[in-house]
Design a protein around this nucleic acid. Structure first.
Lengths: 197, 197
DNA sequence: AGATTATAGTTTCGATTCCATACTAAAATA
DNA sequence: TATTTTAGTATGGAATCGAAACTATAATCT
């Protein structure tokens, strides 16, 4: 019986914290877009990936992005390796605006929680999201840390960090290990493994 | 740094779990309305209270309700004591439909959590909602259990339960103690108190 | 290679949502 | 009695979103 209360609290909290109407000139959807492109790694900063993440169609995603580009929050670059693809990057203007995101009220509230509580709480949220995303057939985004495609024993064999993604087969910078990726696939084999095909 | 992750998870989870588009013929907003009127006590089943809860305007709330009434999910009754006021009650049809609510996916996910975790988790959510609602100037709904207006020592003095709301000055049934109320005011004086004016 | 199919992204259209504003009617207050 | 407040409803315009159609590039299949 507590479960229903939890579910309703999450939905309600999400709605309240999204901020109604315009905040600092952006709509809730536009803020969601900005947040996404601020956190997605370079393989995932595309209209399609955003659509998948946000749980909408590519058409809708395209519109949201168009608005953000027009207002100077995102910059578009065509991919050199794939002529169809496009990458979106936050402009300086956008980064400066991130602090006005209405989500900050919720961030502050979470920040007031005891450190220990935060960790548990966040883990439970992750778990709930995993279940719901699975059932709804939505892709689950995640970071390299627990991804099956992550290869690389952090040790610097020859002077350079040896992180690599086995899916796109490219090297990864340290920053990118913490960014969201659409190719994420959950799987936590022992941290020290060597790839058993 | 974990706080931001928490905030984004909540927003994301809320969006995914709201269900996109129509589910069983109702839109996400209509489902939200149905849930509200299923859980609000008789003082709070009004357009205004729903607007306050849902964080929208009375006009928008009125539209949502109009649709639900037209589709036979809600029944309108004018108040006898206040000619302006209107009370909305769920129809049998609506109660039968509640199980199809897209939120059920999230409910099931929460239900899979260990009992002990659920309690803590729910408490933290409550706390976050309290902070955010306060900061956003939104009213906080709650139940009699922790409301300052709740009067009555559950003991049955003369054969009937003596629960009463000091705000509307009316007797309360046992059911109503668990329903959401717009007149809720947080405050947890000692459970056994007698009203010090 | 050439034809077919799949993918990335965009555009357009219609339905829905929602806020702002204006409005009616019934309390509450002066 | 006159004024103000409150409850609820309508209307118009902007924004959102999904479905479907469309363009262009890549991948696949004879």
């Amino acid at each position: 019986m507590d479960s229903r209360v939890i579910a309703e609290l999450i939905l309600h909290l999400g709605r309240i914290a999204s901020g109604d109407g315009f905040v600092s000139g952006l709509t809730p959807v536009q803020w969601a877009g900005l947040r996404y492109f601020a956190q997605a790694n370079r393989f995932s900063r595309t209209p399609s990936a955003f659509a998948a993440f946000h749980g909408t169609t590519r058409g809708t995603a395209s519109q949201i992005i168009k608005g953000l580009v027009a207002d100077g929050y995102l910059k578009q670059t065509r991919s050199k390796t794939d002529g169809r693809s496009v990458r979106l990057d936050l402009t300086k203007k956008a980064r400066a605006f991130l602090g006005d995101d209405p989500i900050e009220a919720l961030v502050r509230a979470a920040d007031a929680l005891p450190l220990r509580v935060r960790g548990n709480f966040s883990a439970v949220l992750q778990r709930l999201l995993g279940s719901v995303a699975l059932e709804a057939g939505k892709p689950l985004f995640g970071t390299c840390e627990t991804c099956v495609h992550f290869e690389g024993d952090g040790c610097c064999q020859e002077g350079m960090s040896a992180y690599e993604c086995g899916f796109v087969k490219e090297a990864l910078t340290a920053d990118e290990l913490e960014q969201l990726c659409i190719n994420f696939e959950s799987g936590k084999p022992a941290p020290t493994r060597v790839g058993t095909a």
